[in-house]
Structures are given as structure tokens and as C-alpha cells.
Design a protein around this nucleic acid. Structure first.
Lengths: 329, 329
DNA sequence: TTTTAGCACCTAACTATTGACAGTGCTAAA
DNA sequence: TTTAGCACTGTCAATAGTTAGGTGCTAAAA
């Protein structure tokens, strides 16, 4: 158990380090704690024993360890009031009624990325709550079609279909009508099931070249469900942080950002704001990932901010909460 | 005018430097030129006077200057045969019939980016050759619609429409039918003209709340034409080059890549493969941009590769030419 | 028992200094 | 015209010295 004073010292060190990214020496805390540097050094020593502080070298000032940040986040940090400026910028997005939910989220995260100078990520997932509202097929030429699916939440996805053989327009239209009749109202992740168990058994009764057509549509539609969107903004921001002042480290992070599989590992399962400091996250040991799943009115996905471990935790949490709380259509 | 031997020396230096990014000393060329290092030094001295070679410091070996690369590209370089491996990888994309032209280009450039380790950019522009094939509007709720435009070339774009007022579904449908009747076959960049001069004058005859509806659709559709796509692949590749072994330079380039306005400056007006070495391009003085406009079957845009100034010019030109020549639907 | 002053000690970061190395330009001879 | 020889130059890496900002420990003070 930490004493009051130890907590106070930890708090001061974490907050100072978040501001300046420079190790904090004992002398600089004398004023605020009204005691000598020797006393503070003794306390720092204890905090280092508890693995809450670290030194960069044997005679350097202290910086928070991962556990130190964790303790700060769990026990010391106070929720922060949003500054008027921050609210103002977010409000204009959040209250813009002509945007669909997914755009509100994407644009809000862009703003937050600018406000905080961290990197924002939005992982969108077509929720199973999205029901097919309409399927439209537009012929391009004799062998190519464009299939468009619109969901009840306003999602639009399209896919090119290549018909491997000669099929008349009338046959295609019959197929589309059949699919439309059976598929409207289906959750987007069950489209291929409906195709297989409802469309397939009866398509041969109505359509001549049913095999070619069924296969073409099945291939196209089976991929709708897996479509996940990844939107990033401010990728450069985190690279500007002084802790990444190294060509190879920057390259490493840029590579990870470019690797969509790596970015998708950010995906979050738990509700609420979750914080993964350094090795706690599965993206990069030198960053903190703070993220939240959202399920808003049928939209589902993850919003995340990636910053240095010395992130402005209180501010970021408040900003993310503002979004989660205020985007409800 | 350069002598045969001077050209030979320039050629060797450029090609060697492209391979290894290390300054070339006079001694290393003795074998290939069958003369002493002193002779070569004298020639190098001439080439430096002509501003074709540079030294990194007073007693270093030589590297090509921008003019040196330019001379090499214009006068020395020989077109390169495509290696079997390169062709193989590109063929599978180029010959994939189920892809629309824009996807073939995007995917080919991805491959080229991997093959060369440079950064590939595809700037797509909805060409005025794209004609509206179909306009579809799907209602989401009482105030939101999704409008979808499909062109005859298979482009799909969608836009959310927010109706600022209470309008019945029947009125909306009347509007859409009217628009559809008048707009099909219109070049995509003239949609707003058609709306203004053909739809606006008569919409009041058919639709009750014509002002609200006209404005909503006009706002949505006027933005279709400006939609330009920017696709990049292998952004990290160029950062891996040894000449960018500096945190700040990497940050600068990443920032430029993230700035879409900056990337759009890559856009090319001229036909054919064009090469902009260092300060010749308007993106970054330390890179070479090699690019070409393409107009293929109604698709229009720019493909570009960004690499270090010591780019494998011959190989890149051949690769880009392969794409331009082989993608014709 | 807690706090403090004082001191020995530590490391990073900066500044020279040095020698080896790889290259140059110039000159005089081939 | 070419070449060998030589003086010269900048980079790089290793080494040493200095300073600044910090520490831990101890013995005395509160």
C-alpha cells in the first residue's frame, strides 16, 4: 500500500513526464512537496522497489514504469473536464444530422486525433444488426454486373460480378428478382446461408443457366459479410513524439500501420474504455492503445487511439467517452 | 559533348550507385576501363565540371548529380527486358477478367510496388466518359436516403441525403423517377448541370415539396463529380531506402504521404512515361517521381512510382509500360 | 523515528584529439 | 595521353576529459 505522499510523488512524476518526456529529478519536486530532495529521493527509491518508477540510467531522474502508468490510471487519475475548445470542435460533427453514424464516428475520431496528436483508428464491422434493405444489380456489359447491397442502416457495398459464360439479360433479371424476394430483411452476415438454403434449392425452377448464375452471385455475396473497414487518421502524429526519435522505430511503426492485419488486432471485445499500456497491448510495446467497442444503432466496431505510453490518459478518456455517449441516433 | 569513355564512366557510376548507394572511387573502375585510377580521376573531374557527378565531401568518391541521372535517363539508359518473374506476377492481375479496369490498375501497381520496393500511387479520376447508367435511391428513415449512382463503366458511388423537413415517400419517389428519366446517359461531370437546367425547371409541376427535395439532391449529386480516388501502396518501401536513414526525413515523407493535397500534386497531364528527378518534381527534392497519365476505356487517372533518385529507371519504365500497354479492355 | 545536509559517485552529452582509411588533385615522367 | 607518386583532405571510430544533473548513503538534526 502506498502512502499519501508516495501517491502524490507518483502522480507528479507521471503528469510531469506526460508533459515533457524528460526524467524527473528529486530536486524539482521539493517545492510542491515542501520537503528536501533527500526525502523525496528516499520515497522515489521505495516507488522504484515497488516497480512503479524506473531510471533511464543509474544516476538519472525517474520516469514511470508500465506498472506506474497502470497504477496512475487505476488509482490516481481523476476524470478531466472537457475544455470548451475541445467540445466545440466535436459538437459540430456529432450534431450534424446529415451524417450517418459511421461517418460521425470517423470524423469525430479525426478531430480527436488532431486535438490530441495521437493516431486514431476506427475499425468498422458490418453488424449482424444490419439487415438487407435492397439488392440492386446493374449490368455493365455482357459478362459484367455490379451488385449493390444497401442495408437498413444505410450501409452501401458493391461488388463486381463476372459471369463466366453467355447468359441473357432476362435470366439475370429473373435471378436478381428471386434473390431480392428472398433476401430482403436478412442480417448481412447470413446472406450466404440464405443463398445456399433458400435460393439454391429453387433457382433451377426459374432460371435457365442457374448454375453459372448461382455461383457468380454466391461468390460475390459471400464476401459482403467479411468486409471490415479500417480508417486511420493522424498516422504521422505518433511518429512526431520524441520517444520515437529513431529512424528504425519509425519505420517499424509505419510498417505496422500499413499492415492491415496488424491494425485489425486493435479490435476490442469489451464495452467501455479500455487501456492497454505498452506490453499490455498486442500492437507495439512502446505505445499505449486506448480503445472501446461501440454498438450504436446497429453500427458496430472499435474506436482506438494510439499514442506514446506517456499519453494524456485523463483527457483521452474524456474525449472518447464524449463520443460514445453523444452519438446515439 | 561527352566522349565515349566519359559516358562509360557515368554509366558505370550511375548503375553502381543505384545498386549500392555508396560513393564510387576511381580505383574501383580500373578493371572495367582498363586504365589507371589517375586517368579515371581526371575524367571524373571533367564530369564533375559538367555537373554530372558530385562528391559528398572533398575527398570522397563520386555520386551522380541530378543532371547526371537526367543525362543517364535521356542518353545512356537502354530499355530493359522484363524478367520472367516480373511478367508472371503482373499477368495474373492483368488477365483477370472479373476485375474492372480501375481494380486491375490498382492491383498491378500494388504488385509493382512490391517488385521494386518503391511506393506506388494511383490517382483515379471519374472521367467525363463515364455516363450515368442508373440512379437508385433507398430510404433509410424518414429523413435519410442513400443515393447510389452507377456509371456505364461500372463505377459505383453513393451519398447520404438528409431531407431537412417532412416529406412523404411518394414525393421522394416521384423526384427520383424524374431525375432518373432525365439523367441517365449524362456524363458524370455534367450531372449538376442537368439537375439545374432540366430537372429544376419542371420539378415543381410534379412534386409538392420540390424546393426541399431539389436542394437535397442537388447538394448530394454535385459532389459526385469531384470525387477523386487516391490509392497508395508500399508507403513504407521508400522509407526503407538507405538515403532516408534519418528520423526527420522519414517524418517529412510520411507527412507528405498523409496529406492528400500533396499526393494529388503527383497528377500527370502528359501521355507516356514521365520522369521527374529530385527538384524536377513538386513532391520532394530527395525523390524521383515517375508517372504516367492513363486513359483506358473511359477510366482516366495517373499512375506513379515514388522512389529514391537512384531509382532503377530502366526496370521501372519497362514495368509501367507493361501495364499501360496491356490493360485495354 | 523522520528529515535533512553533505559527500562520494554515476552517466549522458559534449568537446577535443588522434590514427587509420579511402579517396582526391596535381605534377613530372613515361 | 597516360601513369606513378605524393601531399592533402574529410569521415569514421576510438579515446579521453569536462560538465551538468542526477543518485545513494550516512551521520547529524529535528
Amino acid at each position: 500500500m502506498l502512502t499519501k505522499r508516495q501517491e502524490e510523488i507518483l502522480k507528479l512524476i507521471v503528469e510531469e513526464y506526460i508533459k515533457n518526456a524528460k526524467p524527473i529529478g528529486s530536486k524539482s519536486l521539493c517545492d510542491q512537496l515542501k520537503c528536501s530532495s533527500a526525502t523525496i529521493r528516499a520515497e522515489m527509491n521505495m516507488l522504484e522497489k515497488y516497480d512503479l518508477l524506473e531510471k533511464t540510467h543509474i544516476s538519472s531522474g525517474r520516469i514511470p514504469s508500465e506498472r506506474g502508468y497502470r497504477y496512475y490510471v487505476d488509482n490516481i487519475m481523476q476524470p478531466k473536464e472537457l475544455s470548451g475548445e475541445d467540445v466545440l470542435k466535436l459538437q459540430t460533427i456529432v450534431q450534424n444530422k446529415s451524417l450517418v453514424v459511421s461517418d460521425v464516428i470517423a470524423q469525430s475520431m479525426e478531430i480527436i486525433s488532431e486535438l490530441t496528436n495521437y493516431t486514431a483508428i476506427v475499425l468498422g464491422k458490418s453488424s449482424s444488426d444490419n439487415l438487407i434493405n435492397k439488392v440492386e444489380v446493374v449490368p455493365i456489359d455482357s459478362q459484367k454486373l455490379v451488385a449493390i447491397i444497401v442495408t437498413d442502416k444505410g450501409h452501401v457495398e458493391h461488388k463486381n460480378i463476372f459471369i463466366d459464360g453467355l447468359v441473357s439479360g432476362a435470366e439475370i433479371k429473373k435471378t436478381v428478382d428471386l434473390i431480392n424476394k428472398l433476401i430482403v430483411g436478412t442480417p448481412i452476415d447470413q446472406v450466404s446461408t440464405v443463398l445456399e438454403f433458400q435460393v439454391k434449392p429453387i433457382i433451377s425452377n426459374y432460371v435457365e443457366q442457374h448454375e453459372i448464375l448461382y455461383n457468380a452471385f454466391y461468390n460475390a455475396f459471400s464476401e459482403f459479410t467479411t468486409a471490415e473497414s479500417v480508417k486511420m487518421s493522424g498516422t504521422k502524429n505518433i511518429l512526431m513524439q520524441p520517444e520515437f526519435n529513431d529512424a528504425d522505430k519509425i519505420r517499424e511503426i509505419v510498417s505496422k500501420f500499413e499492415d492491415k492485419d496488424m491494425v485489425k488486432r486493435i479490435e476490442e471485445d469489451n464495452q467501455g474504455i479500455n487501456i492497454y499500456i505498452g506490453s499490455e497491448n498486442n500492437f507495439d510495446d512502446d505505445v499505449t492503445v486506448i480503445k472501446s467497442k461501440y454498438v450504436i444503432n446497429g453500427e458496430e466496431g472499435t474506436i482506438a487511439l494510439i499514442g506514446p505510453k506517456r499519453m494524456e490518459y485523463d483527457r483521452v478518456i474524456t474525449l472518447l467517452n464524449y463520443i460514445i455517449d453523444n452519438i446515439k441516433t
